[in-house]
Design a protein around this nucleic acid. Structure first.
Lengths: 137, 137
DNA sequence: TGCATCATTTGCCAACTAACGAAATATTAG
DNA sequence: CTAATATTTCGTTAGTTGGCAAATGATGCA
């Protein structure tokens, strides 16, 4: 029950769900995730820690870059079933599809440029923003 | 996404998960649920409201008794899949099995006696308590 | 070494949540 | 109508959570 509750609590935040689903297309470093969800790096780091504690993601450190990915096939069945469930439940979700598109654009940019842009405050990087101004009314 | 997040948030509390699984064996009135989870009636009522908002349970009022049950087969696929998922994930969970046993004892008692016992403070009802004193050390 | 870089941890605040008891609501019984 | 009963709503409190900025840690490079 403890393990299960850790999973449901981890899934009870929209940003964490978005991150989890984004990792389906392969591992990402923190700055790429930051770019996707548009939150402070520290906030993303915390979210990743929650996901990791629930066993929903694994981490790999390469130099000063931290890469997160979905757990390998050796992970507990509980975890795989949870990820499959979320994936199926949101298979046709619009915001998830939008994230997938944006993610492709983000992955096309050199991560180093993302980090640089993020630390310099404004992002002069040519990655589409999540909700373009939306001038309607 | 909204619907899905309502479901995960509803599932992010252990007592709500216990209640949801208890309803698999048939509808229950509030006083029976109170007896199961050993929380204040008002607290249980709130939990039921969260579950209902997520579509995970349906309610039926009969006289002054409120009965809660799992949604009928006409409910959204999202909901059924969520319930099936929780059910499978916790199929072999000890505390869930214990709840099932206690629930059988609770259902064997006239609900009216449960309510009476609950409003009178102490419970002189012969229903097994969840964690008997546990004198070990 | 010293410095720049990427990420995590810490500290703080606002918002939310679960819990309770008390009061309010709704329904039946007398 | 009044009293009793079952449940919900309200108000309060304590604990948790998500967010950011600043401090700290960790790694690579000159």
């Amino acid at each position: 029950m403890q393990r299960f509750m850790a999973i449901t609590k981890a899934l009870a935040d929209e940003n964490r769900v978005r991150i989890l689903l984004a990792l389906r297309s392969g591992e990402l470093c923190v700055c790429q995730i930051v770019e996707l969800v548009q939150l402070a790096t520290s906030t993303v780091s915390r979210h990743m820690s929650v996901l990791k504690h629930a066993g929903l993601v694994e981490a790999r450190k390469d130099g000063r870059w931290m890469y997160y990915r979905l757990p390998a096939s050796g992970a507990p069945d509980l975890v795989h079933r949870a990820i499959d469930w979320v994936s199926q439940m949101l298979a046709h979700d619009l915001s998830v599809l939008r994230d997938a598109e944006r993610l492709a654009a983000i992955c096309a940019v050199d991560p180093q440029r993302l980090c640089a842009a993020q630390t310099n405050g404004k992002q002069p990087c040519n990655v589409n923003q999540p909700s373009p101004p939306e001038e309607s009314q």
